[in-house]
Design a protein around this nucleic acid. Structure first.
Lengths: 113, 113
DNA sequence: CATAATGCTACATATTTTGTAGCAAAGCTA
DNA sequence: TAGCTTTGCTACAAAATATGTAGCATTATG
């Protein structure tokens, strides 16, 4: 359908022919490990191999793709200390952070169903 | 790796061998169209075909899988009016909602890079 | 009762993700 | 400075997921 892989605002993505920003973000974050990478980087800079380890031994192929995508999207960047969140990436993290607490409660609730 | 498809807290999922809730949610939301479905249902109940249409003509196969997963996760449910968000689903939506505004700004910023 | 809309399954094809191997470059370390 | 080790990454085949199309059984609706 759309073999052009990098989700870019204004261009068609999964979920929006007109490339609505929210859908672009959903496409980007919706790919395997994207959110895990961002979540982890909030703990500080990380090397390629540390990231791989943290993300349940994600294959280097996939990790590399995600890194490229998230870098183009200006959510992460490479520094001397390793990969880190950009200013934007940190803001995004702050927005998804509350999910952590909610998820715990949710897990409780569906257990007691 | 893990052919058992439904992400369940406490069971291994993509991103966490111990099934940490946040990772379970990431696995669930990370699948194609999951977030789009939740986002859309916030506009009110929707039929299967309306959802399909809204989600860029998602294939019925995939939509059906997502519906089953999100239903088991108690995020959506089927009512006489069609599929709707559950109480939990609505809470989740509220948490991801701010992403919309942020995404717009983000789209602006990376355009002007 | 006929027609249309709805929810969904089947199944082949296409795309993504995984897993393993391994290489080139940079950084210690003796 | 010669030899490890770590790091970032590519190649490529196999496995898992997603897509697209057809179509069928039910449930509204006229």
């Amino acid at each position: 359908m759309n073999s052009n892989s990098q989700p870019i605002p204004g261009k068609p993505v999964r979920g929006s022919k007109t490339g609505q920003p929210i859908m672009v973000i959903f496409d980007l974050l919706g790919r395997s490990w994207s959110m895990g990478i961002i979540w982890h980087l909030n703990n500080g800079p990380s090397t390629f191999r540390k990231l791989q380890e943290y993300c349940e031994n994600i294959s280097p192929t996939t990790l590399n793709k995600r890194i490229k995508e998230l870098t183009i999207a200006d959510l992460i960047e490479r520094t001397v200390d390793g990969y880190t969140l950009t200013k934007q990436g940190l803001e995004l993290f702050k927005l998804i952070h509350p999910l952590g607490k909610w998820a715990k409660q949710w897990a409780e609730d569906i257990k007691n169903q």
